[in-house]
């Protein structure tokens, strides 16, 4: 009768039920495993870059490489407004023209450019690269805590580096007595200060400093062209972006005149024929500048990002140039030079 069937059914359905229950439990636990969903922010960022010089400047390369490594791809999530001009005069109207576009971050190369951009677009976060005296120029309150909308990287720790360079020049060219010092006459206070430090240090090093104020690329070339071995033993450059564009010509002129010329970047020694330089790794500086840009785009405030200062400087020497100008390099410096180009 019905009861018997019911009893048997119960036995079978009981087994089924237990198996089913177990499977259901296992399935439930497996499906509970949380699925990870990464939500990519697809906002397009606008970054403006201001540089006096040429697009192949190593720091700029470092910046662009750093940005792409951080995941910023132009046209997709990044709009780059590149303002690269040969002179400050040309850059100024571009800064004013960009005012309406309101970039998220501005990267300014050099202190003069930074001042120019800061004036043209107040309030926009600025990452400076190659600043010399950001506190003295009023960009920031202190290196550890900028407390303004500016932050970035310094070129070197202090004005003493100019003296260090002068000293190194003396060691490289032991006969060095009369040094022509080219400087950016249109630059800010930091150039004046650099010059002041040099003026004071020169006598102690047994050097006579001949100051050569320069206001344009052409003037820079003319200044080198006006020099000769009879009046000058070497050409020192108070580094400025002003000299970027005319530098290859300057180097050629110096070699023609068998004058030892100091470069501002390792590239100027390696590729453009300057005799030597004592400079930080500026490609790395540009790369580090990209880190600042990334941080700011991700929401960090410039005032919370401390300013970095390079701690290592490389001595780079071009032996070919030395041979061309008939200079015998001291072996100690050659041995200990970080880079020697032939």
């Amino acid at each position: 009768m019905g009861t018997q069937k019911g009893g048997k059914e119960l036995v079978f359905s009981g087994r089924k039920m237990n198996l089913g229950l177990g499977l259901a439990l296992i399935w439930g636990i497996v499906s509970l495993t949380p699925a990870l969903a990464a939500v990519q922010q697809s906002r397009v960022h606008r970054v403006a870059v201001f540089l006096v010089g040429s697009p192949d400047y190593p720091t700029l390369k470092g910046l662009l490489d750093g940005l792409s490594e951080a995941g910023y791809i132009e046209g997709r999530n990044l709009i780059l407004e590149m303002a690269i001009k040969k002179s400050y005069e040309e850059l100024r109207p571009m800064a004013q023209g960009l005012r309406g576009k309101r970039p998220d971050v501005i990267v300014a190369f050099g202190e003069t450019t930074t001042a120019l951009v800061k004036e043209a677009m107040p309030g926009v976060p600025i990452v400076f690269v190659h600043a010399i005296d950001p506190v003295g120029s009023g960009f920031i309150k202190s290196l550890a805590h900028p407390q303004t909308n500016l932050t970035g990287l310094m070129s070197y720790p202090g004005f003493e580096l100019q003296v260090k360079r002068l000293d190194l020049f003396k060691q490289l060219v032991p006969k060095l007595r009369r040094v022509a010092a080219l400087y950016n006459a249109l630059g800010g206070l930091h150039h004046t200060k650099s010059l002041e430090v040099l003026r004071q240090a020169a006598p102690a090093l047994g050097l006579a400093l001949v100051e050569k104020p320069v206001k344009s690329a052409a003037e820079a070339e003319r200044a080198v062209a006006s020099l000769s071995r009879t009046t000058t033993d070497g050409v020192f450059v108070v580094c400025s972006f002003l000299f970027n564009a005319p530098f290859p010509r300057m180097a050629t002129l110096a070699r023609e005149r068998r004058l030892p010329l100091m470069g501002c970047t390792t590239a100027q020694v390696a590729e453009q024929g300057a005799l030597w330089t004592y400079a930080p790794d500026i490609y790395r500086m540009g790369h580090q500048g990209a880190w600042y840009v990334d941080q700011i785009l991700k929401g960090a405030k410039p005032q919370d990002l401390p300013v970095e200062t390079p701690t290592k400087f490389d001595l780079a020497i071009n032996r070919k140039t030395a041979q061309e100008i008939g200079l015998a390099l001291p072996p100690e410096l050659l041995i200990l030079a970080d880079k020697v180009f032939h």
Binding site: T3, L10, V11, L21, L25
Partner: peptide
């Protein structure tokens, strides 16, 4: 532990019902 406990629950229900079902049949009869 939960799976085991669930299985134990199921088994106890099954066994309980298996014992009580004939009693229920008996009672109804």
């Amino acid at each position: 532990l939960l799976i085991g406990f669930g299985a134990a629950l199921g088994a106890s229900l099954f066994v309980g019902r298996r014992f009580v079902r004939p009693l229920e049949t008996l009672r109804r009869g």
